[in-house]
Simulated scan of single mutants.
Amino acid sequence: MRRALPACALAALLAAGPAAAVPGIDEPDTVKVNAIRNPEIHTYKAVLAGLDSFDQHHALAPNVAELRFRIRPRGGAGLPQAPRVRIEGDHDFILPLDLDASHRFSVPRSEAAEDAHGEVVLNQKRKFYRIHPDVRTPGLPANVRRLGDLRLECKTMVAIAKEEIPLFWVLTINSLLLTRDWCNFTHKEAMPDWGFDSDAPLVGAILQEGNRSKLLKTDGDRFSVALGDTSWGDDALVELEFAPAPGAPAP
Rank of each mutant, 00 (worst) to 15 (best):
G139N: 14
A19V: 09
L207M: 10
L14I: 11
T30S: 14
E66G: 10
S102D: 12
P62W: 02
S224A: 03
W169Y: 14
I173Q: 02
L99N: 08
R130C: 11
G78M: 07
F185N: 03
I71G: 06
A49T: 00
L13D: 02
M191Q: 04
I206H: 01
R136P: 06
V158S: 00
I36S: 03
I36C: 02
P39T: 04
N63P: 05
T179H: 05
K188M: 11
V121R: 04
R74G: 10
S106K: 12
M191G: 09
R145N: 15
F69N: 00
G75N: 14
P249N: 03
L60I: 05
E88A: 15
A101Y: 13
V120K: 05
A35S: 09
P18F: 04
Q81F: 05
H117T: 13
G233T: 09
L5V: 11
F242A: 06
A77D: 04
R151F: 10
P141E: 06
D181N: 07
N174G: 03
V31E: 12
V238D: 01
D26H: 11
L60W: 04
R70S: 10
D29Y: 07
H117E: 13
I25M: 09
D29K: 00
T186I: 05
R126S: 07
R109M: 12
P28D: 00
R145S: 11
Q124W: 06
E114I: 04
S102H: 13
A20F: 12
V107Q: 14
P166N: 08
R2W: 01
A12S: 12
D26G: 15
T218P: 00
F54S: 02
A250H: 06
A250V: 09
A200L: 06
L147D: 04
Q208K: 13
R2Q: 07
L95W: 03
P62S: 13
R151Q: 07
V170R: 01
A21H: 06
P62M: 03
H117D: 15
L177E: 02
V22Q: 06
K162D: 07
E119A: 14
P6N: 12
H187F: 11
R72K: 10
C154V: 08
T179K: 01
E163S: 04
I165S: 01
D199H: 08
G220M: 09
K188D: 11
